[in-house]
Structures are given as structure tokens and as C-alpha cells.
Design a protein around this nucleic acid. Structure first.
Lengths: 120, 120
DNA sequence: CAGCATCCGTGCAGATACTG
DNA sequence: CAGTATCTGCACGGATGCTG
């Protein structure tokens, strides 16, 4: 069985995962941390145009979920390092399945869209 | 390589896929149609609390993407049947990878959240 | 039956400015 | 440096009512 049948339950915890995977920044953070821990600014610069507030929200939620750890070094200037936990790292696989699927089917999807958008 | 490095491009087509997978209703439609074609109302009833407008939007977008087909029988009363295309059906695999991951890790995530939310 | 048209509320992304 | 504080806007989900 693909799903235990509770995927239709609005409160199904699987939904939470889908939300995370579907979240733009969460995925990018995982991929960014794939090759090692990074500081806040390094993440920010690597990811591109992301407001600090939004990045912070994303990181806090991921920390809460146990996907990353957050280590604060009380220096001046402060240094905070984010690291993928084993669980966080295990997300890379599902993500790569999705991206593989995407790269395989995107051309067909694009064609389907064009066909759909063509003359009425 | 997990990603071709363009996952960070805001216009990366892979993002579109992530958005679809992350979309609550799209996933439920795929799972609903897994065992055969369904009519609009059947989908609506099976999925649960979803506004017709939202379901229609979801179905149109999926049709446009080539994930489902929409057949209209000009009868009275009208009958419209939605069917998973081969491409749409191929989405079940990635989805099941996600749900498998979810079912494996949800307990750990829940525990992590509780630990995080505990005494300040 | 299968939807379209319309309206509403609002959650939330994002920009900007400031601080320990 | 690594955030917090504050404001804005608008995309989007959802409810309701109508129609071919």
C-alpha cells in the first residue's frame, strides 16, 4: 500500500512532510548543507534572494523538526553554524527522487502546457 | 549529481514540480485516481472538504501539465471523467517515496518537536 | 452534474530598518 | 554577524450563489 490510507486526513502527519518538501527554502537549505555546515550568511548568500526573516523562520522550523542543528558561538561578532542532522541528510534521497522525476518529465510537461495553451 | 545545479534558479522548472508535489490537492487527486477514472463529484467526495472552485483549479492545472485527461460527455446531466495519464501515474512513485520517508521519520520528528517546545 | 462568477478574509512572503 | 521588529501587499483558499 502506498499510503496507509490516512493521507486524506487533514491532520495526517504526512501532510506536514509534504509541506516541508514543497517549501522552496527548506529544500534549498537541505541542498546547501549537503556538503557541510554553513553559517547564516553563507546560507543566505548561497541561496540567493531570501529575506533574513524568512530564512530564520525556515531554519527555526527545520531545527524544531530535528532536520538541522544550530550551534551558537558567543563570540564577537557572533557565529552561528547550521548542520544537517542524519535525519535531515536522509531527506536528500527523497528530494533527489523528485528532481530526477522532474528532469525526466519537465520537457513533456512543457510540451503539454504549450499544447494546452494553443489556439482555443 | 543530485541536482544539475539549477535548483537555485528561481525559474528552475524543477521548482514547478516541487510546487505540484507540495500541493495538498494535487497529491490527493493523484492518489484518488490511482485505482481508476473518477467523475468530478466522486473526486470531490473522496477527497473531503474541498471547495469546487479549488478542485477545478487543481484539475485544470493538472490537465494542462498533462498529468490527467478530462473527458466531457455532453449528456444531461453532464458527465466529466478524469483519468490519470501515464505521466500522472508515474508520479505515484515519487509520492510513495515521500510518504515512506514520512512514515519512517514522523515519530522522530514529533519527538524532536516536543523536545524543542519543552521548558524554555 | 459540473462548473463559473463573485466576494471576502487573511495568512504569509518579502522589503526595509534597526540592534545586541 | 545574526538576527529581530515592523509594515505592506496580494496571492490564495474558501464560502456562497447561480447556470447550461
Amino acid at each position: 500500500m502506498v499510503t496507509k490510507g490516512n493521507a486524506f486526513d487533514p491532520n495526517c502527519p504526512t501532510r506536514t512532510i509534504l509541506d516541508r518538501i514543497g517549501d522552496k527554502w527548506t529544500v534549498l537549505v537541505v541542498l546547501s548543507l549537503r556538503s557541510g555546515p554553513l553559517r547564516f550568511t553563507e546560507l543566505r548568500d548561497g541561496i540567493g534572494r531570501v529575506a533574513p526573516k524568512v530564512l530564520t523562520q525556515t531554519l527555526r522550523r527545520m531545527e524544531r523538526d530535528g532536520l538541522i542543528t544550530r550551534e551558537v558561538y558567543p563570540e564577537i561578532p557572533p557565529r552561528v553554524v547550521y548542520t544537517l542532522t542524519p535525519m535531515g541528510a536522509s531527506l536528500i534521497e527523497p528530494i533527489s527522487v523528485i528532481t530526477d522525476w522532474a528532469e525526466t518529465h519537465v520537457p513533456a510537461i512543457t510540451r503539454a502546457q504549450q499544447r494546452y495553451d494553443e489556439p482555443a
